[in-house]
Design a protein around this nucleic acid. Sequence first.
DNA 1: TCTGGGGTCCTAGGACCC
DNA 2: TCTGGGGTCCTAGGACCC
Length: 406
Amino acid sequence: MDRQILHIDVNNAFLSWTAVDMLKNGYEIDIRTIPAIIGGDESKRSGIVLAKSPVAKEFGVVTAETIYSAKKKCPRLEIFPANFKVYSYYSNKLYNLLLEYTEIIERFSIDECFLDMTNYLQGDTLLNKAKIISKRVKEELGFTVNIGVANNKLLAKMASDFEKPDKIHTLFKNEIPIKMWPLPVGELFMIGRKSVPKLNNMQIKTIGDIARTDINVLIKKFGKHGKLMWEFANGIDNSEVNNKIEKPKGVGNSVTLPVDISNKEKLSEILLSLADYVTYRLRKWNMIASTVNVQLRTKDFKDYSHQKKLYTATSSTKIIYETAKELLDEMYSGEPIRLVGLRVDNLTDKEERQITLFENEDIKKQDKLDKTLDELKKKYGYQSISRAGKMQVEAEFGDTSKKKLN
DNA sequence: TCTGGGGTCCTAGGACCC
DNA sequence: TCTGGGGTCCTAGGACCC
């Protein structure tokens, strides 16, 4: 029997949720009705468009472009900052509403869910369930969604991406040739910026062209990814709606610096504050990591990274920071750096750690210190506990960004 | 002109072992 | 003088997603 799948996608999520939240707090204008975006901070060199209002879209503003370029297209553009607390609040509201319709929900991202309705239709049709959900979200939560209606996740996702906003689209097997095949290849899920020109060079322009291409030709050119492209173009996807909360496979943080930095001691200080936060998040999952990875981005956007496997998995700030510093030492040759990142991979649950020869008194002491600091962070918020180095770096950057604003 | 931050998965090459 | 091949682990980099 066919599975019955819905994909729910919040329209302009960050901007819609901000609008709803502002209205709730007495703000008189609905920012969905004016040229507006949610964006980063240009003075901190993170000035890109995260979400846009329909009016801004009419001016040609696109997601992920620079605010500078967006303002050129639309001088009256109003810019609002991102607020992830608000997003997570409305994301949970949506999730709780959807739970009334099925237990099998996969939270694909903060603003997207897959629902497996196969055993939850109660005599109704899948399309009708979508209509009920759409209406309830709009009336009760105050924002709109697109819903894709199909027999697998891929087709439901493709369908929800058709005409927006506030629309429901079906994409059943017999509709694939009419609704999906005429679209350009870049519209297919998992075909990104780099694959489009490669496909076009092979005279493959539409999703239908992919579907009609010999799968072996695609595999030869793209490897496993080629197989996936062919299957998706033909509407084939047997993956399950996964409603389990997955433990992370890695945890990382990175910062774009307000100014380029060429001083290794300063870069180390940044690594310390990143190590502090990354390991804090790691310990919150009660996990330990055995790979440490440092990423640098130069001022001309060249990325490089070095990583190191540890003998013993750990969540210790000290050990991870020291490893990160070693990696910085071996990879850094003095060029101006725009971004610094630190991530840990190969995570395992802390309980599974083997007691090794290295599990000595010193490590236990460090563990205890980390734990004590975590308790304080939990109690007073992350910002309250900060290392001297981190504060020093922030103080300096604070000055530079202020200078830029004046 | 300026270009975020958080992830997952894959590939290719080298080291090392049997 | 010429020189196997299979397997695993590690590293660096890249593609893709939201």
